[in-house]
Amino acid sequence: MSDEQQSGNNVPSPRDDTGEVIGVRKGMFGANNGGDTSGYGGLVRTVTLPGASARPYGGPGGVFDEIADELEGALEEQGIAPGNALVKTVVDRGEITFHVAREHLVQVARTLRDDPALRFELCTGVSGVHFPGDKGRELHAVYHLRSLTHGRLIRLEVSAPDADPHVPSLVAVYPTNDWHERETYDFFGLIFDGHPALTRIMMPDDWQGFPQRKDYPLGGIPVEYKGAQIPAPDQRRSYS
């Protein structure tokens, strides 16, 4: 095996922390309200997402290091300390994720789009994720950026607490995010500051609540059969 392959895809980059805890699982068979006779009732497992990686990040042909170097250099040129803008960098399953501090998001995205060595021209929209167990950073907005010039794909992740669900809008940098941000607002209540018209897009305008948050019920109804009733999918017992 050549040196390039060694430093490339095959060796996972080292991690220097254990990752963020997003929840705790208890028991095994979903019997949460007493009466667990399975013997697994006392089982406790913490759920952690992959933690920050240390250099080298690897990637095919060391491309992740290249992207990170260019991005940090470009941010320094603009007078932003990379450590402040990029909270952490996670390399996991052959994908690189930059966790960006929300106040620097627009600047980082603009740099990624405009810097000739980066050139991430295409944003594939924003995907919201709600982690109620991740205290202080419950709402995550995940952006995937694609560079057609260099054929690369990276992920930006921003988080906001439930108490202050504000994230700057990227519509000025990537106009394609217009509908995507409206959708994420509609489903998660994440407010994108600076969006030209942040209104509901999927749900009716007078809808109460943000339906794809974890604290919003699925909203199904029990299904009746002859002599029996099956509860809605979210009311059934599930494996934990």
Binding site: E224, Y225, K226, G227, A228, Q229
Partner: peptide, 11 residues
């Protein structure tokens, strides 16, 4: 008769 009060096979 409402479905839930019907008897017979579950279907």
């Amino acid at each position: 008769l409402p479905t839930i009060e019907m008897k017979g096979l579950l279907r």
